[in-house]
Nucleic acid binder design. Sequence first.
DNA 1: CGGTGTGAAAGTTTTCACAGCG
DNA 2: CGCTGTGAAAACTTTCACACCG
Lengths: 240, 240
Amino acid sequence: MNDLHTHSGESPSESPVPKVVVSRLSLYLRELQRLEASGQQTISSSQLGSLLGFSDAQVRKDLGLFGQFGYPGVGYRCDELIRAMRDILGTNHPWPVVMVGAGNLGQALLGYRGFGRQNFSIHAAFDADPAKVGQTVQGIRIQPLDELAASVSSHGIRLGMIVVPVQHAQEVADRLVAAGVEGIVNFAPITLTLPPHVQIVSVDLAIELEQLSFAVTSKLAKALGDPLHTTHQSKGAGIG
Amino acid sequence: MNDLHTHSGESPSESPVPKVVVSRLSLYLRELQRLEASGQQTISSSQLGSLLGFSDAQVRKDLGLFGQFGYPGVGYRCDELIRAMRDILGTNHPWPVVMVGAGNLGQALLGYRGFGRQNFSIHAAFDADPAKVGQTVQGIRIQPLDELAASVSSHGIRLGMIVVPVQHAQEVADRLVAAGVEGIVNFAPITLTLPPHVQIVSVDLAIELEQLSFAVTSKLAKALGDPLHTTHQSKGAGIG
DNA sequence: CGGTGTGAAAGTTTTCACAGCG
DNA sequence: CGCTGTGAAAACTTTCACACCG
């Protein structure tokens, strides 16, 4: 590393970075920011890994996909690595986000301090309900849905959040895409159908809990030899 | 399939089910419930897969880990498959959940209809702030944190949600575990350190958005040949 | 025919292990 | 020495392709 013939213009054919790597990158960054705030200057791949439950090799391999950031015998400098990670993730510049849906959850998210940590901010909020439109929540005025497209395009907004009831989610998603949004966080419990150039991340609270009920159930089930959780029971009666 | 010498007592050594399979199972179930509600009786693996963006083979392989649920030439019966999935995920019986943290987000989650869909319900809510304790939100009285352990153990509660500010999250997690909780959904932006028998699922809104900013940025970057997003640029100056 | 269940092949991600560096 | 960066091996996951079934 530290080779000074900085070969920036590298070969153009790249295997796309796996999603799971990107999610670990975010965890590395979150942890690095905590470490830096606590005054730590450098960190090794094994320290960083063990803080997060990953192996040292995994940390190095993940970082190695994007460049060479470490110093042999030393580790990584927190400040440098933070900056590099933010460059990679795209959060060294602000990301205004639009939110659609100003119900319970939407209003709570409007007040959530913690987007800001990574340069995200809710730029505008929209709702279809005339009773909500015009209210100001957490300093953000709720606007009517008709203003969505103009707001997105005039401010070059690229990301949106869907916090509407499930029966409206697909339509809202379509409107966001039509307005030019390129990425959506969807809190409604439905699989959205969208063009492939639009990125989606979904958060379904019932599904998160289901992951736990499975894990907690199968832990016990295996100990007891429950066939459903130790594979291969056969089905019950026939179809008719 | 449909072999009637129902070999329930199968071999005890099992490869654990991958997490990614469990998350797809939840998506299958969510979609099946929608289909059943719309009156559909049966569905094939390729239909179900294409509704969710998976291949038919993937659907069959995932289900095949747990048993034989389909009918050749027909597909799967929605009602049967729903029941089987709920058995597998453990959601054929109710799951009372405790919530710690009754701020903006916590209160919004108290009002969230949609846990119920999969048999989860928030049984009790706790907060350290004396100003919040005693309030009733969405029909649930906010209790002081001291009552957490007694509530968990006396009702046999196995799952908890952490919705407190980040600086209190680890301590709250420790208290939940000490009280006997076996699985936690954590909304605070921190990696919790807990004994291995406790399951954790994390939701960090800033990280969800980062996944999008990466995807949206790198899509453009690749088109332009940005070296950070087309791998292998070298670092800047030396360490000193 | 239409569709499942499933071994075998292909592809992907993680771990190993070690050369090389400051 | 301690630690990175990285090929090679191992482990794991997905896709293929086809026997079999109603």
